[in-house]
């Protein structure tokens, strides 16, 4: 069973609901469990390769480490509800709480848990499939759906063009910094031009956006979509009830 087969909208909803649930808790163990489980699922049940995972994971780790350091040195201290539970905690945890290690872990592992969901979604979902699924499940209008797909297709052009615009500017004798605005302006002109051209091309191919059109691919909901959704939600709810720190 590969996660690529799951309905993208269900996957997106799962991660949205889980994230909202996770934002109401401060359990380091649950965060880590979610993160580890996501990575495990990613490596065993998707076609994502390790190196891909690492590439996307890296910025998440950097951000989490940043939050950890910030939380450690500039944390708000122990929360009131945590103080009530403090008696039941082992010595190691109590020691950690007094130094700010625990709040630092709370905030940084939460980000990791989110990143786990994000990666699980990003690396097991095809962009087009996601948009089509949104069109059927969430009534995303075809105008928006195909507009988004067309715009995404221009991204490689944009990166290439941005480089050549910057070269052209420097060849004209302009000193450019990375934040220089004139190339951005030129790129905006290009982008708007491109969007007009693509819009006309799509319209010329009979795309209306409001008129009815046929759909040759209708994604179906299957039992495992709902199973995936309910397993995650139940898992997190159970974790929130049973886990202590």
């Amino acid at each position: 069973m590969k996660l690529e087969k799951l309905d993208p909208t269900v996957k997106a909803c799962t991660s949205l609901v889980c994230v909202i649930l996770l934002s109401f808790q401060y359990l380091v163990s649950l965060n880590i469990a979610v993160f580890v489980l996501s990575l495990l699922l990613l490596l065993t049940c998707t076609r994502a390769r390790g190196i891909q995972v690492l590439k996307l994971l890296l910025p998440a780790l950097v951000a989490a480490f940043g939050l950890f350091v910030t939380g450690y040195f500039h944390g708000r201290g122990t929360r009131a509800e945590d103080l009530q539970k403090i008696a039941a905690m082992p010595y190691a945890v109590r020691a950690a709480m007094s130094t700010g290690l625990y709040p630092a872990l709370q905030i940084s592992t939460r980000l990791l848990a989110y990143a786990g969901f994000g990666l699980l979604f990003a690396l097991s979902t095809d962009g087009e499939a996601f948009i089509f699924s949104l069109m059927h499940r969430c009534r995303l209008s075809p105008k928006f759906a195909y507009g988004i797909l067309a715009a995404i297709r221009l991204m490689p052009n944009m990166v290439r063009e941005f480089k050549s615009v910057r070269l052209a500017f420097r060849a004209r004798g302009m000193q450019l910094r990375w934040y220089s605005l004139p190339p951005v302006f030129t790129m905006l002109v290009n982008s708007i031009r491109w969007s007009q051209c693509v819009a006309m091309a799509m319209e010329s191919k009979g795309f209306d956006g409001d008129a009815p059109r046929t759909c040759s691919i209708v994604p179906k909901l299957r039992w495992y979509d709902l199973a995936f959704f309910s397993c995650w939600i139940t898992g997190i709810l159970v974790g929130m009830c049973l886990l202590r720190y």
Partner: peptide, 13 residues
């Protein structure tokens, strides 16, 4: 459609 594409392409940029 052209409004959507304009915003979408700028968002990509």
């Amino acid at each position: 459609l052209k409004d959507i594409l304009m915003i979408a392409v700028c968002a990509v940029l």
